[in-house]
Amino acid sequence: MDIPRDPAAAERRILPALPDTDPTLGEIRWERWEPALTMTHIDPACSTCAFPGPLSTAFGKTFHTPPPSRVRIARSTRERPSKWTTVQHRAYWCITHWAVRCPSCDEMHVHRQEDWTEIHYRPPTTERAVPPTEDNVLF
């Protein structure tokens, strides 16, 4: 028995996976892919496939636990000095990673914002990165 296939299912694209962890900072939670902001001094085109842009960007968050800090619990008077204690502040999710992807060829770079180190690279999909020619010769 032949099962009819959905033509739209064959055309669906699977986006490249973003890294789940950073070796330095741990688990990463990613936001949605959004079109990159267009800036007048930055070329929005893809340097690999010449897609005119805009490229897609996503921000990643890691769980940050700030170090304990000292806080004053009582002010000083002439008779006694100030009283201090160490307090552990609440941990929170903060944006620590930035990913940029070309919607045409799916080339992707992931950077850690702390020092702008590239932690992940996905090369372009060759079928989309190299435009077809009439005689199927690449160069």
Rank of each mutant, 00 (worst) to 15 (best):
A91S: 12
W30N: 01
R128I: 06
E127W: 01
R90A: 13
F59G: 15
D20T: 10
R13A: 13
T125L: 13
P103G: 02
L15I: 05
E118C: 10
I42K: 04
W30T: 01
R29L: 04
V100K: 06
A17Y: 00
T57G: 11
T133A: 04
Y121H: 12
H97E: 08
R72C: 05
E34L: 07
E31N: 09
S82P: 09
R78W: 09
W30M: 01
S69V: 12
I119P: 15
I3C: 08
H111D: 05
T48M: 09
F51H: 02
T86Y: 00
Q113N: 14
T24D: 08
P67W: 06
T57F: 12
V100E: 03
H89V: 12
R5P: 05
R122G: 07
H41Y: 05
D115G: 00
P23M: 08
E134M: 10
R72N: 04
A17D: 05
V130S: 03
W98A: 02
Y121N: 10
E127C: 07
W98S: 06
P16Q: 06
L25N: 05
R70Y: 08
H97I: 06
M1D: 11
A50E: 15
E114D: 12
E107I: 14
T126W: 03
H97A: 10
T38M: 09
H41I: 11
A129R: 01
E114V: 15
T24Q: 08
A129V: 01
T21N: 09
V71P: 08
P7C: 00
H111N: 02
T126M: 14
Y121C: 12
H89F: 12
R32Q: 12
P124T: 14
K83R: 08
D20E: 10
P52N: 11
T125F: 06
T65D: 15
T117S: 15
R12Q: 11
N136V: 08
P44A: 07
H41N: 06
L37H: 13
F63A: 04
E34W: 06
R32K: 13
T117R: 14
D135V: 14
W30Q: 04
P131I: 02
P68V: 11
H111P: 01
A9E: 07
P16E: 01
R29M: 05
H111E: 05
E34V: 07
R101Y: 02
R29S: 06
Y121F: 07
H89T: 12
L138N: 00
P19F: 03
P68S: 10
